[in-house]
């Protein structure tokens, strides 16, 4: 499984998350249906840019704390995700995997979870 970025066919900028209008060249990505963008799988490896250990969680999480971080991916994109790293450090190499990240009633959300590479 992958998380996909949206590549503008006009200028090549990859957007994650999705946006209807390209931030760089202003092309309407939604115009002509899917013709204007191309799905590209985001890299799952990168460097940990920042993180936090959150101890006050929304009610549907039944864990006492959650490690969250922003990762600078090797392909130049950035992504927010959960961390499965006992003692994270700024700038460390990490590797991601798609897992269930949240169970909200009957809704199962999958997303990226990073481990130390």
């Amino acid at each position: 499984m992958n998380i996909y970025g949206y590549k503008c066919k006009k200028c090549g900028t990859v957007h994650y998350p999705f946006r209807t209008t390209c931030k760089k060249c202003g092309a309407f990505i939604f115009e002509d249906k899917a013709d204007r963008y191309q799905l590209v799988p985001l890299s799952k490896e990168g460097k940990l840019l920042t993180f936090t250990r959150l101890r006050s969680l929304p009610g549907d999480f039944d864990v006492p704390e959650l490690l969250l971080g922003i990762v600078q991916l090797d392909d130049g994109n950035r992504i927010t995700g959960q961390l499965d790293i006992p003692a994270p450090k700024l700038g460390m190499k990490v590797k991601g995997e798609i897992r269930v990240v949240r169970q909200e009633g009957y809704n199962t959300h999958r997303g990226i979870v990073f481990e130390a590479a």
Partner: peptide
């Protein structure tokens, strides 16, 4: 979906 809240964004 990851559990991100305003305090967690502020923490990062």
């Amino acid at each position: 979906i990851y559990g991100v809240t305003l305090p967690s964004l502020a923490g990062m």
